[in-house]
Amino acid sequence: MSDQWTIDRGLVERISKVARLELTQDEVEKFTGQLKVILEAFRELDDVDTEGVEPSFHPQELSNVLREDEATPWNWDPLENTEHREGRHFKGPRIQ
């Protein structure tokens, strides 16, 4: 990883696995080219001096927004939106 601002096919394929997103060979090809251009444009981030600058996770920092520990049941049917169910369980794919 000599330069973090470059990307190649192999990396795009690896990312697609991490992201659980099946890509066709054409998509890999196309995205690799487009991402190269995009990252080249984003490289200007490197020029900003951020020594000692804190990251901003939000535009304005709030703190200590907490809820009290009370059990308040939600009245709903959680399975209403799925076909993948068996009894009151959600049904999912196998692991391997």
């Binding site: 520990d69 009370e70 049941p73 939600w74 709903w76 369980h89």
Partner: peptide
Amino acid sequence: ETESKLFCGCSTDSEGAEPNGNTCPICL
């Protein structure tokens, strides 16, 4: 040991509850 879940008001006591009975849109 709490009454409710970490990020929503669903009960943590699921003994005898039906599957997915202690859920809400937040914890799902």
